[in-house]
Design a protein around this nucleic acid. Structure first.
Lengths: 331, 331
DNA sequence: TTGTAAGCGTTATCAG
DNA sequence: CTGATAACGCTTACAA
């Protein structure tokens, strides 16, 4: 059996209360007793039972992180940001991805009423009223990473996808006049994807760029979907002069096809993505894109969460993640 | 306050023991009482307090995952594998990265004697006797991902880096005779790095490939270090005909330099990596490399861990992760 | 089939 | 400054 404070108490000839206090650095404990207790604890290799401690304190040293997927550099950067900052504040990170709505709901339940986590961060990428309702009833501190629409109800980190996309498109369109444009969007149900597409559309309007319905094709954010859709451009129709995509991964898929077809990127054909993943910056020519400071999202989320846990104040803060134009050579 | 079994008991007019049993699907509870209890639980939105449950059971529903870093696709794939499999078995994943030895040791202490995790997976990439000693004293089920050397003491997942590197080199050397070779290794202190380098050396010997000390340059596994070291090849000396690297990332760094210098990859200059990260397969020409099934490492580790937790048997198993040659066009 | 009650390891309150 | 003890919510013998 692992040693407990009871044993220390016996060995030190004091009560468990004193041991508990000594180990918690309670100044009321006299130095001589404290050092005796510390010494014994060290000798028998005492390790506090965190389950007991968490239980009695009614909270834990864990921060939950609920993500839609674990695929992609994007998400792992968030994990990285969260873990780093959480650890430096004495918390562990509980990662989970919600494959379906039931497991999402379960995770939330376990993290909140279940008491598993002291607070949690949840990223939402699709409209889901039931989940939002569930979050409303949560008495556990939480931070939502999502679209703007939830920022008044919860502490939140928002990524202004609309603006990022709009700005990028403006930059692209101002560089030259393109004879034809195709847009490969992310999944229709994904809010981020919708916002990015809307940013594109509005920029088109502003630059009097005529866009037809069939010029916007739905992908699923993966490399493969970009590749597949781009192949069809080369098979069926006139090859577009400009391709814009809902994320970098799909842009990279396109680039593979373009390279195979020996078209010169940035000269004969142009492309831009959005996200700013390193991959896009490692290839040559570098991908023109809008960088989203993903790791910062994680860090900021924890920062906000910890603050909420400390102050327990009920006004909702919102932090907007900065995006930055990366001028590559594909435009 | 969150509802407890006490409240359910009061509402149902039974004892808390009965409630506890009913909710745990104890067959001894008669159907009528069970359904009444279930009904009430649902109505008042009862959620078991996991902290209490874990505490009383003396174990938790968490699986710890201790990684050396969270950088790199490599690690995030492991997280993905672990999380997926753990979740489907009712466990949550507690990720942590050990920036320094103290925090590593703390995490282990918390996961084991602290009781935080029901079991844990730890990846070790550098020799560290104190940590190994600490692991020996652990009474918590654990799986080590590491070099072969620990496989007799612990349940372990080993990546046969030596063999992977050796096989790759054999393939490379058998394709053609190269006039000059450079090897960019990972950090000297990293065991995986050492094994890969040794595999390379032995393959050289077998193919009577003369290698001098200065032909092996130490990098740090990053894209940047590959880039930097490769640049020096172009500045100072005769450009090598073949470059082999300790991982894909560094190979990609080299490729950037090679492309800049307009040398034709796979024709004028040859390169191969090791890891099999997607990046290497997205570029053109595709990188010749040895794929390590990273996600599988995570999955297998959990599988092994859960088995150990169930059977509580003390013989140590070892699972070797399969590697696969990816014939790209850079060789 | 159900109830009573002990107990898990810790913290925190109240007395001394 | 220290000790005795209740309390946290749940599980699980043991009794009924």
């Amino acid at each position: 059996m692992a040693p407990t404070i009871k044993e220390i108490a016996k060995l030190a000839g004091v009560s468990i209360a004193t041991v508990s206090r000594a180990l918690a650095n309670d100044p009321k404990v006299i130095a001589s007793t404290k050092s005796k207790i510390d010494e014994i604890a060290r000798k028998i290799n005492y390790q506090p039972n965190l389950l007991a401690r968490n239980f009695v304190k009614g909270t834990s040293n864990l921060i939950g992180l609920i993500l839609p997927h674990l695929y992609d550099e994007f998400y792992s950067d968030i994990i990285k940001g969260v873990e780093k900052y959480a650890q430096s504040n004495g918390y562990y990170t509980l990662v989970t991805s919600s494959s379906d709505e039931d497991s999402l709901s379960d995770s939330i339940a376990n993290f909140t009423s279940g008491g598993l986590s002291a607070g949690f961060i949840i990223m939402l990428t699709s409209e889901n009223d039931e989940i939002v309702e569930q979050l409303r009833h949560s008495h556990t501190p939480l931070v939502v990473i999502s679209d703007k629409s939830l920022s008044r109800e919860f502490n939140s980190i928002t990524i202004n996808n609309y603006e990022a996309s709009y700005k990028l498109c403006k930059y692209v369109f101002s560089k030259k006049k393109y004879s034809s444009v195709k847009y490969i969007s992310g999944p229709k149900s994904n809010i981020d994807s919708q916002m990015r597409r809307d940013g594109f559309k509005d920029a088109c309007r502003e630059f009097s760029m005529p866009i037809k319905k069939k010029d916007i094709i739905e992908g699923d954010f993966t490399f493969e979907s970009g590749e597949k859709i781009c192949k069809e451009f080369f098979y069926e129709e006139k090859i577009p002069e400009l391709i814009l995509t809902g994320n970098d991964m799909m842009a990279l898929g396109c680039i593979k096809v373009i390279n195979k077809n020996k078209l010169k990127l940035g000269e004969e054909i142009f492309i831009a993505g959005i996200d700013g993943i390193i991959l896009g910056q490692m290839i040559s020519p570098r991908l023109t894109t809008m960088k989203i400071q993903t790791e910062l999202i994680g860090t900021n989320a924890v920062k906000m969460l910890l603050e909420q846990m400390k102050n327990n104040n009920h006004k909702h803060r919102n932090s907007n993640v900065v995006t930055e134009l990366l001028k590559g050579n594909t435009i």
